[in-house]
Nucleic acid binder design. Structure first.
Lengths: 227, 227
DNA sequence: CGTGCAATTGAAAGTACTCAAGCCACGTGG
DNA sequence: CCACGTGGCTTGAGTACTTTCAATTGCACG
């Protein structure tokens, strides 16, 4: 289950009643405080000391890097259940900003890591989370390194649709700018690619933030690189 | 310490005598068989079942994905000490190929994971490894998403030089094709970028595989995006 | 001293970017 | 209630950069 799915609140990776790590997780949750963010508000900035790590209760966030000249690259989007703000260093690698109004749990980093280390189950779970995230990051590396604009946008829509797992009317929680920054394109190129996908009958757009896949087969062909 | 450093045998992340996880690691090493590969030989292919994971004893390897049309994206390079071929799924995500003649240790995946799970220290270590790898993958995402060709090549050389940690005569273990596939460029663009870096006096090249940084400051400017 | 492969260079073509307008939905104020 | 402004989205024209295709050079090896 990917972050985009959780963005709609469809599932919870951490803190749900399903996993076997419940008791352990409640130990961690006991150490959490809760913070509310409005859309656009930033939670931390690249380079900050990182005494806390975070978990989304509701809403959606993005993590990104900013280059000297202001260009941005969003590393990932997160939704309900997702844990973020934790790395092998003690400072933040990215800037985190709310895409929508959010509620996040705040864990003291040291406590969090200590509790995780003490539970084989949690360790395993956290390791899986990072393996999956690495997997996703590498998929994006392939996309950024070797796919054209149309292919990137098609791939992105396909993933959003799959993650939302209902065939009708998928919602984009993020702006065109965020999509562009995620896909390594400009706003304009994202728009043009969407227009092209409409022109080819692969998708339709009910509004700027709502789309429907009309022809999954064609969309997949395009995502796979068909001209 | 990054993979490129280990490529020269400068350090060992796993299996060195330095870490505190020695006894645990020896338990794992006891389960290992050893395999020799010649340069160009492939160890596994994307989609293969993954009953084993691997660790380089000597030599250098690359892990890459191939798209339908033959384009490649190399996910990472690995050197002595590096562990690879392991993920959250039970099939391989990449193809692994020897860049030079190699010796690798082969671990049965299940045994490996069981032993790791049984040791807090090893779990911690493996988690750190994956966090670091995710960190590196995201750095590359920024590079691929937002940097131009010259900037990518400059960044790459700087990293190679830093990892080899001797200011003179750095060695490129990989071919131009591998560099191109790593940087999301074509061979030709890599060459032209190298030529441009020479022209600007940032580096010199003793041969196609050996370079020296003449002006680190300028190289860093270029890597940071100076025109 | 050829042969063959890797690396480099050149010219033409293509793709995404920049800059510049328009468009559209929505909220505000007259 | 409607005109107006704002911000996000879309479209267009020209430019810059990377790729593609095509030689050419350089180097290791027989």
């Amino acid at each position: 289950m990917s972050a985009l799915a959780r963005m709609n609140g469809d599932a919870e990776e951490w803190g749900s009643a399903e996993t076997g790590a419940d008791k352990e997780i409640s130990k961690i949750a006991a150490n959490a405080t809760v913070k509310r963010l409005s859309s656009g508000e930033t939670l931390y900035v690249e380079g900050d000391r990182a005494p806390y790590c975070f978990q989304i209760v509701s809403g959606a966030m993005k993590e990104y890097n900013t280059l000297e000249d202001g260009r941005r690259q969003v590393a990932d989007f997160y939704g309900p259940g997702d844990l973020f703000g934790i790395s092998e260093t003690d400072h933040q690698l990215h800037t985190a900003e709310a895409i929508t109004d959010c509620v996040v749990r705040v864990y003291p980093r040291d406590t969090f890591l200590r509790i995780v280390a003490g539970s084989q189950e949690l360790s395993q779970h956290l390791l899986d989370t990072f393996m999956t995230r690495l997997h996703r990051a590498r998929d994006r590396i392939v996309m950024l390194g070797r796919m054209g604009a149309l292919q990137r946008v098609a791939t992105f829509l396909r993933r959003v649709a799959r993650d939302q797992s209902h065939s009708e009317a998928c919602t984009l929680v993020m702006s065109r700018q965020d999509m562009a920054d995620h896909l390594g394109l400009t706003i304009e190129t994202v728009c043009r690619s969407l227009t092209e996908l409409k022109k080819r009958g692969a998708v339709s757009m009910e509004s700027a933030r709502v789309f429907t896949i009309l022809d999954m087969h064609r969309l997949e062909e395009i995502a796979a690189g068909a001209e």
